[in-house]
Nucleic acid binder design. Structure first.
Lengths: 131, 131
DNA sequence: CGGTATCCAGCCCGATACTG
DNA sequence: CAGTATCGGGCTGGATACCG
């Protein structure tokens, strides 16, 4: 079976593939992770996200936000103030996803040791020559 | 800090974002997960993967394999037999990644319960609550 | 401030055909 | 069997300008 690291060996490969890929799809956007992590540290206004993410365009930030919103990971709240104010935050579902996401980070930190190998492009020192 | 769900609150947001995105990058190919899960259940020949993955093209399968290979997740082994034979398998690093990947699947199974909420890609026929 | 509209570039992926 | 070569299409994301 596939899952030696877990107990539920009764689910099909196909089901795991589909589901895993679907989850990956939720955060596959170029900036999804950035937005998720930023919102994990607190509610933000649109312009705060725009500034803090860095090089993102407004169009793409909006797209990213809408996508996360549609998937139920992020909540949008608009206030009728006169310079308009909109705040984004993580939903409970969004929060729950930070766990699995952290396990990916943990893996990187443990296996790739400091992530230095990941910056730019991943170049692993070959544990043994592959022919 | 950001990580209320974990203990290591001493790493920067930036570092987590970079690392998490890097890991995501390793498996971001359309077929990476399929290949990884398939290889997780045992070594396969090229043609076996080609058949088992389903709708993938040879070019894309090769690309996916090369990418996973470059990242150190998959090992390639060629035999000089006369109908050429090539076998692919997971490296220890590849194996170690199946854990974090499973936690993504677990999340989907727990939070999305049937994956129906996952846009378009996953078409679950009739929801006959299995628990 | 918080977006849209429009145009455009790059990348990933597929189909088909050919090769050692 | 296990690829490579070539052409092409769709989708994501960027730049800029404009709007309530």
């Amino acid at each position: 079976m596939t899952c030696t690291s877990l107990a539920n060996a009764d689910v099909s490969d196909y089901e795991m593939i589909e589901a895993t890929r679907a989850v990956l799809g939720l955060v596959s956007g170029r900036w999804s992770i950035d937005v998720l992590y930023l919102l994990a540290s607190g509610t933000r206004r649109y312009s705060e996200l725009f500034y803090e993410v860095g090089e993102i365009s407004k169009k793409t930030l909006t797209q990213t936000l809408r996508s996360l919103q549609r998937d139920g990971l992020v909540a949008r709240r608009a206030y009728a103030d006169v310079p308009v104010r909109v705040e984004y935050s993580l939903t409970p579902l969004g929060w729950s996803l930070t766990g699995p996401l952290m396990s990916l980070y943990e893996w990187a930190a443990a296996e790739l040791d400091g992530v230095s190998a990941l910056r730019g492009s991943v170049s692993m020192p070959p544990p043994e020559g592959h022919t």
